[in-house]
């Protein structure tokens, strides 16, 4: 039998088997869909989080807070000095009055807190835009140098929390991988059981096929395709569900932190393809594993 003919036969038989025992097939498809949905969700969240970290890294900045009585000329001098440092993209001076206005703008409900003071309540500062491509040790040493200067009260640096976010991304990825591996194992087991059950239900037909001279390839082929189809269907269901949940969160959380950080972009087409193929591979593996030791 030619390969394409055989493949057509396998697909037809597998489709008939899937429809005939649709309840157990559905169970297998849903099991694999749940595992892949969770895997996809972790991929989506960690991917968006990593992209956000990367974006923030590109916008990395440090704020150098000066003593309250720093004169404006000194502020400009320090800004010019900071601007000469390699790895510094920009320096913006923020006078105490500008800092107060900004506070009142951002937190209108707390505007009274900083109003009516004899002296400006907020210190002057330098907002320094840093080039993420510049070497981290040199940047660190430079900022430490500023911390030690007498005219400086505090240096607030993005690096620390960006590092913490990177750790969170790594943890999310690791936990996701472990969880998905476990769930995928369960899904493979389910598919293997379903295939074994189907093979058992067909044992009479299999014995007839052997009797008339069927090869093992011809006998097992439909079961392998059945496992593959279950896995691919599971992958498709998972991708569809993920897309639906993404749309829902995106629509509901527009403008929120969750939307901005965790569900900013959907998976890339190749990642969706990978999820579906992973389902197919798991299904095929389940089928092969279930029939490998079976005498059929």
């Amino acid at each position: 039998m030619r390969f394409l003919q055989a493949l057509r036969y396998f697909c037809r038989e597998a489709a008939v088997n899937l429809l005939r025992s649709w309840k157990v097939s559905l169970l297998a498809v849903l099991t694999i869909a749940v595992s892949l949905f969770l895997g996809g969700a972790f991929l989506l969240v960690s991917g968006n989080l990593a992209a956000s970290v990367e974006r923030w890294r590109g916008e990395m900045r440090a704020v150098i807070y000066l003593k309250p009585d720093t004169p404006e000329a000194e502020l400009r001098r320090l800004a010019a000095e900071a601007g000469r440092q390699p790895g510094v993209k920009s320096v913006e001076t923020v006078t105490p009055a500008a800092a107060r206005r900004r506070f009142q703008q951002i937190f209108p409900g707390l505007a009274d807190l900083v109003a009516g003071w004899q002296d400006e309540p907020l210190p002057a500062s330098l907002e320094v835009g840093l080039d993420p491509a510049a070497g981290a040790p040199a940047r660190s040493a430079w900022l430490d140098g500023w911390r030690r200067r007498p005219e400086v009260t505090l240096v607030d640096d993005d690096r620390e929390w960006l590092g913490q976010l990177e750790t969170v991304v790594a943890v999310v990825r690791t936990v996701g991988l472990a969880l998905v591996a476990g769930l995928l194992g369960a899904a493979i087991f389910t598919i293997a059981s379903v295939i074994r059950l189907t093979a058992y239900l067909h044992h009479e037909e299999i014995s007839v096929m052997r009797l008339v001279g069927s090869t093992e390839f011809f006998i097992r082929g439909p079961f392998y395709v059945e496992g593959l189809l279950q896995g691919l269907l599971g992958g498709l269901v998972a991708s569809g569900a993920l897309w639906g949940v993404y749309q829902l969160l995106h629509a509901r959380g527009r403008g929120s932190l969750v939307s901005a950080v965790l569900v900013l972009d959907f998976l890339k087409p190749q990642e969706v393809g990978f999820l579906i193929l992973l389902g197919g591979a798991a299904g095929l593996f389940g089928a092969v594993a279930s029939l490998r030791r079976e005498a059929l």
């Binding site: 039998m1 036969y9 037909e205 014995s207 007839v208 096929m209 008339v212």
Partner: peptide, 18 residues
């Protein structure tokens, strides 16, 4: 040893099919 869920045609054509 006929397969009940297959038609007579399907039962007799296992070998030609393969």
């Amino acid at each position: 040893r006929l397969i009940a869920r297959k038609t007579v045609f399907e039962n007799v054509t296992y070998l030609p099919r393969l």
